[in-house]
C-alpha cells in the first residue's frame, strides 16, 4: 500500500476546503446556531430545576457540545460515490492504482482534520466561554473518549458507505441519504439526549448502531460508565463498524460489476 498517495488525497482535500473561507464561516455559524437553539430549549424545559432524572443542565450542554462537535468533525461526504456515479467521474477514480475505499477515507480524513481545527475548536471555545460545560471525568476518560470517538466515526462512516453503495443500482439516492440522516440525528442522541428517551425506546435504540456514534463517547467523557461497560460499548462500536463495512463491501463488489459509466 502506498500511503503517500492516500496522504496526498487527504492533504488535497484539506487545502481545497481552505479555499472556501465563506463556506467554513457559515459552517461554524450553523453549528453554533444548532447548539444555542438546543441549549435554549433545554434551559427552558429545566427552568429552575437542578437536575432531571439525575441529569444536570451542564451534562446536557456537554452532550450537545460533544455530539454536535463530533458530528461537525465527522461529516462523511454522502455524495462522494453517488455524485461520481451520477456524472460518470467514477471512471477517473477507478483508473487510479489505489484502493477506492482507501481514497474515500483519505479524503474524508482530510475533511475531518479541517473540521476539527476550523469548526470543532471554535465551537468548543465559544461554548466554554458562554454556556460552560463539564470537564472530562478524568485523564483516563479523556483518552477513552478519544478512542471511542474514533470508533464512533467508524460506525458513522460505514453507515454512509453502505448507503452510498446503493447508488450503483439506484443512481439517485438523495432521499435515502435524507432518511439516513434523520435516523442518525434522532437515534444517536444528537437532538434528544438518549437519557430522556422512554425506557422501551432507549432499550431498542441501544441495539442500533446509531446510539454508539456520539452517545457512547459522551457517556465515557462524563464518567457515566464503569470500565467493563466501556469495554462492552466500545466492543459494540467495533462490532457495528465491522458488520456494516462488510455489508457495504458486498454491495461494492457487486456494484463494480454492474457499474455503468455515464457519459461517453
Amino acid at each position: 500500500m502506498r500511503l503517500s498517495a492516500y496522504y496526498a488525497y487527504a492533504k488535497k482535500q484539506f487545502l481545497s476546503r481552505s479555499a472556501y473561507r465563506f463556506d467554513h464561516l457559515m459552517g461554524i455559524l450553523s453549528t453554533c446556531l444548532q447548539f444555542f437553539i438546543f441549549y435554549e430549549i433545554y434551559r427552558t424545559l429545566y427552568g429552575s430545576k437542578e437536575s432531571v432524572d439525575g441529569i444536570t443542565m451542564s451534562m446536557i450542554t456537554t452532550n450537545f457540545v460533544l455530539s454536535l462537535g463530533l458530528s461537525a468533525i465527522f461529516s462523511p461526504n454522502d455524495y462522494f460515490v453517488p455524485g461520481r456515479i451520477w456524472d460518470g467521474s467514477i471512471s477517473t477514480e477507478l483508473l487510479r492504482p489505489m484502493s477506492f475505499k482507501g481514497r474515500m477515507i483519505a479524503e474524508n480524513v482530510g475533511d475531518a482534520c479541517f473540521n476539527l481545527i476550523f469548526k470543532f475548536i471554535p465551537v468548543l471555545l465559544i461554548a466554554i466561554f458562554t454556556t460552560g460545560m463539564e470537564k472530562p471525568a478524568g485523564i483516563g476518560n479523556m483518552i477513552l473518549f478519544l478512542i471511542s470517538a474514533i470508533l464512533g466515526y467508524g460506525v458513522l462512516w460505514t453507515i454512509s458507505f453502505l448507503v452510498q453503495m446503493t447508488a450503483f443500482w439506484l443512481i439517485n439516492i438523495w432521499s435515502l441519504i435524507t432518511i439516513k440522516d434523520v435516523f442518525v440525528n434522532v437515534l444517536s442522541g444528537m437532538m434528544i439526549p438518549l437519557w430522556f428517551m422512554p425506557d422501551w425506546m432507549a432499550g431498542v435504540i441501544k441495539f442500533t448502531p446509531f446510539a454508539s456514534i456520539y452517545f457512547t463517547p459522551v457517556q465515557i467523557y462524563l464518567g457515566q460508565l464503569s470500565i467493563s461497560e466501556i469495554v462492552f460499548k466500545c466492543g459494540v462500536q467495533l462490532f457495528w463498524t465491522v458488520i456494516i463495512y462488510a455489508l457495504g463491501n458486498v454491495l461494492w463488489n457487486k456494484g463494480q460489476k454492474k457499474l455503468v459509466v455515464q457519459g461517453g
Binding site: 498517495a5 488525497y9 467521474s89 477517473t92 483508473l95
Partner: peptide, 24 residues
Amino acid sequence: GQKSQLQWDLPVIDSFELLKAIYS
C-alpha cells in the same frame, strides 16, 4: 476527451503533483 480527470479547483501543476504521489 469529454471528461477531465484533473482536479477542477486546483492549478494544473497541483493536479500533476497529486498524480506524482498517486503513481509514486
